[in-house]
Design a protein around this nucleic acid. Structure first.
Lengths: 216, 216
DNA sequence: ATATAACTACCCCTTTATGAGTAGTATTTC
DNA sequence: GAAATACTACTCATAAAGGGGTAGTTATAT
């Protein structure tokens, strides 16, 4: 079996970390860094152009943040695997990344050997999750069944919950406004807020979730 | 109890039937025809202007048909009751009308006394459904549980069913196209077709229905 | 008193979605 | 062969949705 080479793009707005990653990958002949980007927007263009095997993406970036960039990449017509690289060991970040389609999640303070091994895993189709976060992820996924649902709903205001119910009935903004006696523009604000709080990208996703959760 | 008077608007693109209805209502002092319209679009404007107690609406009109007009009226900020008047005794038409929010459903070949009595019922809050269609309606409503669901699904082509499933996952047209390997514009055509076939007004309604029906 | 949060309503702008139409190709049906 | 249907892909147009912002009001908490 020949030793394949993998094209890699590194996206990180911190030049030092970026260079560190590039250097680290340079030590392993399997990895070829074909491009670097200092922002999500810039990285997006490069990914589109190069269609790399692997994208290493910083989670905490100014401007277009890591999750947004990850989603944007997943919407491109490329089949690159994306591994998030971050200093955060917050399980919330991990869960958000996994939900948005991350193929791996690495911590910047991991040992170089661990990082390289994890990247190889990701390319191999296995999700690379550090040991210490595995338990948090399992916990978060279990919470998906009820705990998290309540947590998500409780993060909404009464008005937002009311509007979510309307969405689950398939109402348009105009009809929701008429139903609740408020302006259509105001409905948009609440919809916008609840989409942000629940991390949905459209009223469609929110409505489907609400229906599946039995929100009434 | 004083004998109230009800303002009525008649919408029918058949002048003869329209005049007949107006004359019929003229025989009963409770009804006051405040306007007539020969098309759905025209009627819509009049309903908006007059906010009548009752709208008598022909189901079978050229141009904007009766169901479409009914929906448009229900979207207006008026609380008019709408009774469909039609020659059709097809239960499908009846079901569609009831679903779209009709407050009554009359047949043009009913006896004048029956029609007037039914209109009074509708104004009183009771849905006016002819005896002979009652059984069909009950049947149709029972069919809502499975039979009609299958009938609705079977009216779709394979591609449309496939796309409906994508909608139930919350995908946008662009993502559906990418998922199925076709152009976004093509997805739009299929979505438009399935919305028409299933009588939904938005992908949101279709997706919610699909989720509730367990379409997978 | 002064934050803080929620609710309301509007502005701007871009993207999506929907509706209507035309049209070519392939397959099936009569 | 001709007709019908499904699928594909356009065009053009309007409506709806979503993301950003500012801002005034009310209520509640610090």
């Amino acid at each position: 079996m020949m030793s394949e080479q993998f094209n890699v793009i590194v996206i990180d707005d911190h030049p030092l970390f970026r260079k560190g990653v590039v250097q680290l990958l340079g030590l392993d002949t399997r990895f070829v860094v074909v491009a670097e980007a200092a922002s999500g927007a810039e990285g997006l263009v490069l990914v589109q152009q190069h269609n790399p095997d692997l994208v290493i993406l910083d989670l905490n970036m100014k401007g277009m943040d890591g999750i947004a960039t990850l989603r944007a990449i997943k919407e491109l017509d490329v089949d690159s695997r994306v591994v998030m690289l971050t200093v955060s060991d917050q399980s919330a970040d991990l869960v958000a990344a996994v939900r948005a389609g991350a193929d791996g999640y690495l911590l910047k303070d991991m040992e170089p050997e661990e990082i390289v091994a994890s990247l190889a895993d990701a390319l191999d189709g296995q999700m690379a999750i550090p040991e210490r976060l595995g338990r948090a992820l399992a916990l978060a996924l279990r919470e998906d069944d009820g705990n998290e649902r309540n947590a998500m709903l409780e993060s909404l205001t009464d008005r937002e919950r009311e509007i979510l119910v309307c969405l689950s009935y398939g109402l348009s903004n105009k009809l929701v406004g008429r139903e609740l006696g408020i302006a259509e523009g105001t409905v948009k604000v609440h919809v916008k807020s609840l989409l942000r709080k629940l991390s949905f990208r459209s009223r469609l996703e929110a409505a489907i979730w609400a229906v599946e959760q039995g929100v009434k």
